[in-house]
Computed example of a mutant assay.
Amino acid sequence: MSWWLAYIGLGLFAGFFAGLLGIGGGLVMVPALAMMFAAQVGFSTGEVLHLALGTSIATILFTSISSLRSHHQHGAVLWKVVIQITPGILLGTLLGTLFASRVPAKPLALFFTAFVCLVAVQMILNLKPKASRDLPGAIGVFAVGSGIGAVSALVAIGGGSLTVPFLTWCNVRVQNAIGTSAAIGFPIAVGGTLGYIYNGWGHADLPAWSMGFVYLPALVWMVPASMLIAPLGAKLAHRLPVATLKRIFACVLIALAAKMLWNFFPEPDSFT
């Protein structure tokens, strides 16, 4: 199989739904990459999920730039919030990658699958928190940023599924919440990418062309594909029944995560 074609296909798929639904592509890329890496020669079973996480968040590093610029041009980014939350985001992502690199693949796969299912249920039921308070002070924003950064690094996402609900809960307009979340996705990707590179540097079981836990061949093919198709998804968001597509996409997420989990627990007695 020509794996570069698979990477391009995954980049197109993830980028399209990222633009269409306003979510990061990490939830799709991680289970798909984990299965692709596991099927290739030269990949250690114990490291495929760490490589999938690192490569996914490195991809978001590039794709988040175009999203950030677009929302900034529409005046939807609350830069004061971005500045306040970024130090916490960077600390959280670095701690998250440190923790993820030291957790064995099976428990990490369980955590990822549980998080994916939570996001999928939120999509299917279209759950949204009701605005009930204002943004906390600088210390509170820093603490929230640390938590968002840590979880985002653990599951290799841009943080939108966490940041948008938090901001809307704090009475921030939805448009501003989405735009600010897009801007916050960049420091999440920066901290996460640096963390996965550093914590994976020098591991003996990594394949050739790896930079820590970032697999460069997959990164090189996925980034252009996802950046090319994301604007098309964003345009179609105003023409297609997004609520229905969210439910379909949620089912795809659950199926991908379940298949990835099955690869780590192929036998019924693997849980014992």
Rank of each mutant, 00 (worst) to 15 (best):
F37G: 05
G11E: 10
K106R: 15
A156W: 01
K259E: 09
T244G: 15
V144P: 03
A38R: 05
P104M: 06
A105V: 05
A183D: 07
T163N: 11
T163E: 03
F186S: 10
L206N: 06
P266R: 06
K235S: 10
A38T: 09
P217T: 07
S66L: 10
F265K: 07
D205I: 02
P87A: 08
S70D: 13
Q122W: 03
I124H: 00
K130P: 02
R247Y: 02
P104H: 07
F111A: 15
V81K: 07
M260F: 02
V41Y: 14
R133V: 05
G145A: 14
L240S: 06
W262L: 10
A150Q: 03
E267P: 01
P129V: 01
R133G: 11
N199E: 14
A258K: 00
L108G: 00
L98H: 13
A255N: 03
V82P: 05
G42Y: 12
I184R: 05
L206R: 00
T93L: 13
A143Q: 05
F264M: 04
T55F: 09
V82G: 10
I148Y: 09
S132N: 12
G158Y: 07
A208T: 13
P217E: 11
A34G: 13
W3Y: 15
A131P: 09
V103L: 15
A225S: 08
A120D: 00
V103D: 08
G212D: 01
T168Y: 11
G140C: 07
F166C: 08
R133A: 13
I89A: 05
G92H: 11
G15K: 04
M123D: 04
L219F: 13
M260G: 00
T86S: 15
G15P: 04
V164W: 09
A18W: 01
F112V: 03
L78C: 10
G26P: 10
V214W: 00
Q40G: 09
L51P: 07
T113S: 15
N176W: 04
H74I: 06
A100V: 11
H74N: 13
M1T: 08
L206C: 11
V220T: 05
